[in-house]
Design a protein around this nucleic acid. Structure first.
Lengths: 168, 168
DNA sequence: GTCCCTATACTCGGATAGCAAGTGTCCGAGTATAGGCGG
DNA sequence: CCGCCTATACTCGGACACTTGCTATCCGAGTATAGGGAC
C-alpha cells in the first residue's frame, strides 16, 4: 500500500498558500521551486485539488493558485482524497462467491465480515485525517519552526512580484 | 492508495484454515480452488504469511498449510503487513529541506507536522486492524452464514483426502 | 508375518515474464496586463 | 492629458511517453508415503 507522493506536495502547498495574505495567489512554478519538486508534475496535482474545490486558479499574468476556503475549513482528508482518489484501499472482490461452494447470489446481500473489518479500519484513518485541518498545519509551523527560518521563507516569497497579485 | 488483492485472499485463507480441525493442513491448490483464484499467485502470498510466522507449511504428500497459532492470537494487522509489506503508506520525502529557503540540516531533527499527522492517521488504522483477529472473522462467519452453506463448504473440504493430513 | 528399502507422487519455494497505474513531461488555449496610439 | 485598442507575456489545462511495482506464472528442490521384496 502506497500513497502518492503528490499528497505530500499538495498538503505542503496548501500550508504555504494558507500562510499568504488573504486573497493573494502564487503560481505553480513558484510553489514548485519553493519545495524543490518538478513544476509540471506538481501542476498536475494542483489541478486535482482545484477540481475538488480546495484551491482556485487565476489564469493570466499575476495569476496563480490560492485557497478557496479558510484554512481551518480544509481537512487533510479532503486534500488526500482529491489527489489520491476517493476509492477505498481495500477492495472486496467477493471471492466468497467464486468458489465451487458458492451459494445463490441472494445469499450475499451484506458485505462479508472481512470487508467490513477492513473498511472499519479505513474509517478510523479517514476520521483522523478529517479531524486535522490545514489551519492546524499552519499553527504547527508557526510554533515549531525557528523565527529566522520563517523570515527567510517570507522574504523569498515576497521576492515574487506581488504588486498586484492579489486581484479579485 | 491501493491495497494488494493478496491481502483479501490471505485473510480468507486464514479464516478457512482456522475453521479446520486443529492441526489439520490444506494444500495451496485446494485453497485456491475453494476461493476461485489463481493457484500460483495465491501460493506467493501464502509464502509471505508463512515467512511471517502466521502459518506453517508441511512439504510432501498430505502436506499443506495450517495456522501456526490459535486464530484468536492472529490479528488482521499481522496478515496485512505480512502480505503488503510493513512500510508506511505515507512517506515523507522531506521536501521542506529541498527548497531555496532550506536551513541547516540540524533544523530538521523532528519530523514535520504534516508527516506526524499522516502517521497518526495510519496508527489509528493499524490499531483498528490490530484489535480484530482471525478468530473474530470465524465467529462472524458462523453467526451470519446460513447453516446449509456451512455444511456445503465443510463437505467440499472433507472431499479432500484427509485420512492422515493432520500429521505432526 | 515383519521389517526395510526404493521408487513415486505430491508439496512447497524461489526465480522469471507481463501489465497497469503512478510518475514525469510537454505544448496549446485563455486572460489580465502594459504600452502605444488617437482623440 | 485622457481613454481606447492591440500586441504581449504569463498563467492554467489537458494530452502524451516512461518507469516502478503489482500481477501472474512456471519449474526445480525436498519429503512423507506406498508398495514391493528380502528375511
Amino acid at each position: 500500500m502506497r500513497l502518492s507522493d503528490g499528497v505530500e506536495w499538495a498538503i505542503h502547498c496548501c500550508t504555504v498558500l494558507a500562510a499568504l495574505p488573504a486573497g493573494q495567489a502564487l503560481p505553480a512554478a513558484k510553489l514548485a521551486e519553493f519545495h524543490g519538486v518538478p513544476p509540471a508534475y506538481l501542476a498536475k496535482h494542483l489541478q486535482a485539488i482545484t477540481g475538488a474545490g480546495i484551491t482556485e486558479s487565476l489564469p493570466g499574468p499575476r495569476g496563480g493558485y490560492r485557497l478557496a476556503r479558510p484554512p481551518a475549513e480544509i481537512s487533510l482528508l479532503q486534500v488526500v482524497l482529491a489527489v489520491d482518489g476517493d476509492d477505498a484501499a481495500f477492495r472486496c472482490s467477493e471471492i466468497r462467491q467464486r468458489g465451487p461452494v458458492a451459494g445463490p447470489p441472494d445469499t450475499y446481500r451484506r458485505p462479508c465480515g472481512i470487508a467490513r473489518a477492513m473498511w472499519r479500519a479505513e474509517d478510523a484513518w479517514r476520521a483522523e485525517l478529517a479531524s486535522t485541518s490545514i489551519g492546524d498545519m499552519v499553527d504547527e509551523v508557526l510554533n515549531n519552526v525557528p523565527a529566522d527560518q520563517l523570515d527567510k521563507a517570507t522574504a523569498w516569497i515576497s521576492q515574487v512580484d506581488i504588486t498586484r497579485r492579489n486581484r479579485k
